[in-house]
C-alpha cells in the first residue's frame, strides 16, 4: 500500500555505513584472497602470480580511503588485520568522531563495536545480504569469497613489451554478476594495472585502477586503488584506497579475531 511508500523508499537509503563496510571488506578480499590456481596455461599462470603478489597469507595494513560523491569528498583511515579470507579485524582511526569503531568478520558472521554506545552489535545475516546499492561496490565483492582464479577462465587478448591484457570470463558455475572482466597486467612486476567490469550485455559498469607502485613491506605494491562506477546514476562517484603501510606474511595475534578484541583494541 502506498501509505508505506515513503517507508519503502527509506529502505533504499544506504544503511549502516554500508559504504564503509563494503569498502573495508572489499579491500580485505582484494588484498588477502586471490589464492588458488586452476589451470596451468599462461594466462592462468599470470593471474596466479598477480594474485600471489597482491596478497599474502596474512596482511597488516594501514589504509586511507577517500570517497567522492557528486556532493562531497571525505576521508577515512583504518588499520586492518587479516588472515586469508576467513578472518579480518578492522579499526577506524580517522575521522576522530569515528575513532575506535571496530569490525570483526569471521567467515560469514560479522560484528561491529561502537565506542559511543559501548556496544557490540552482531550484524544480522539478512542485513549483510541486503542491498549495497548506492555504493561503488556490490555485495558480490563482499559477502562471497570470490576469487579470480577460481571463478574465471583467463585468456590473453593482447601482449606487448609493457604488459598483458587478459580477458576473464566467469565459469558457468561461478556465482558472479559480471559478464566479463578485462584485466591489465604490467609485465615487469606482474602486478595488476586495471580491471574493467562488464555486465552480460558488454556494458562497462565500473573500473578499478591500481597505480603508484612502490615498495611496501617485502614487495613492490600498487599503493593507490581507484574504483570508478560508470552507471549514470553514480556519475561523479569515486572511491580511492591508499595503502600507506603494509606488512605481508607476518604472524598476527589470534587475539584480534575474537569478540573481545572489538572492545579491547578499540582504544
Amino acid at each position: 500500500m502506498k501509505t508505506t511508500a515513503t517507508a519503502n523508499r527509506a529502505q533504499d537509503i544506504p544503511r549502516l555505513g554500508r559504504v564503509e563496510l563494503c569498502a573495508l571488506f572489499l579491500l580485505c578480499l582484494f588484498l588477502v584472497c586471490l589464492p588458488r590456481l586452476a589451470r596451468a596455461d599462461e594466462a592462468a599462470e599470470i593471474i596466479r602470480q598477480v594474485e600471489e603478489r597482491l596478497n599474502g597469507k596474512t596482511a597488516v595494513l594501514k589504509i586511507a580511503m577517500v570517497i567522492t560523491t557528486s556532493r562531497a569528498t571525505r576521508t577515512m583511515k583504518m588499520d586492518s588485520y587479516a588472515v586469508g579470507n576467513e578472518k579480518s579485524f578492522i579499526k577506524i582511526t580517522y575521522p576522530g568522531k569515528d575513532y575506535g569503531i571496530t569490525f570483526l568478520k569471521i567467515d560469514d558472521a560479522m560484528w561491529q563495536y561502537v565506542p559511543r554506545i559501548e556496544k557490540i552489535i552482531k550484524i544480522p545475516a539478512s542485513m549483510m545480504l541486503q542491498s549495497w546499492m548506492g555504493t561503488d561496490f556490490t555485495n558480490d565483492d563482499l559477502v562471497r569469497e570470490s576469487s579470480i582464479s577460481r571463478d574465471y577462465d583467463a585468456r590473453i587478448i593482447t601482449e606487448n613489451d609493457q604488459g598483458y591484457e587478459i580477458e576473464l570470463l566467469p565459469r558457468p558455475e561461478a556465482a558472479v554478476v559480471w559478464g566479463r572482466l578485462l584485466m591489465g597486467v604490467a609485465k615487469q612486476e606482474l602486478l595488476p594495472e586495471s580491471v574493467r567490469y562488464f555486465d552480460e550485455e558488454g556494458v562497462l559498469v565500473r573500473t578499478l585502477q591500481y597505480t603508484e607502485v612502490k615498495q611496501l613491506g617485502d614487495r613492490l605494491y600498487p599503493s593507490r586503488w581507484v574504483m570508478t562506477p560508470h552507471d549514470p546514476e553514480k556519475a561523479g562517484n569515486r572511491t580511492v584506497i591508499e595503502i600507506t603501510e603494509a606488512a605481508f606474511d607476518v604472524p598476527i595475534d589470534e587475539e584480534y579475531f575474537s569478540k573481545r578484541a572489538l572492545q579491547r583494541f578499540s582504544d
Binding site: 545480504l129 541486503q130 542491498s131 549495497w132 546499492m133 556490490t138 555485495n139 558480490d140 554478476v177 559480471w178 559478464g179 567490469y197 562488464f198 555486465d199 552480460e200 559498469v205 552507471d231
Partner: peptide
Amino acid sequence: GLAATAHYS
C-alpha cells in the same frame, strides 16, 4: 536471500 545483477540487487 538476495538477488543481484551487475547493476542492481
